[in-house]
């Protein structure tokens, strides 16, 4: 029962994901939504940062946002789970608090 963090910004435009990773305690969950989903895709210059985060946290990406942006679940970095809106709700239930990094 730790914190769920959400990140909705592309890592290319803002430092939101880096700020989130810098403040999330080990064992917390991070869900990438909206433009935040671009960070979940393999082959970007932010992949190392995301892989580092996977080592310490549980990472999720919102599938509908991924598909809307022309990305496929197969392109997601191993270790990141794809969830739908119902899965998003489940994550908020499983964690005591939600912190939205805006």
């Amino acid at each position: 029962m730790s914190m769920l963090h959400t990140v909705n910004k592309s890592p290319f435009e803002r430092n939101t994901l880096a700020a989130c990773i810098g403040h999330a305690l080990p064992g917390s969950a991070i869900l990438l939504i909206e433009d935040g989903v671009y960070a979940a895709v393999r082959g970007t210059s932010h992949e190392d940062m995301v892989r580092g985060a996977i080592a310490e946290h549980t990472l999720y990406v919102l599938g509908p946002d991924l598909l809307a942006r022309g990305m496929k679940p197969e392109q997601v970095i191993e270790g990141i789970s794809v969830v739908d809106y119902g899965g998003f709700v489940d994550l908020t239930e499983q964690h005591e608090r939600v912190q939205s990094w805006l």
Binding site: S2, M3, G22, H23, A24, L25, S28, R97, V98, Q99, S100, W101, L102
Partner: peptide, 17 residues
């Protein structure tokens, strides 16, 4: 940063703007 992160973890409600 670490101390602030720990403090955030103690909260019941976090409102970000």
């Amino acid at each position: 940063r670490e101390a602030l992160a720990a403090l955030m973890d103690e909260q019941d409600v976090i409102l970000s703007f």
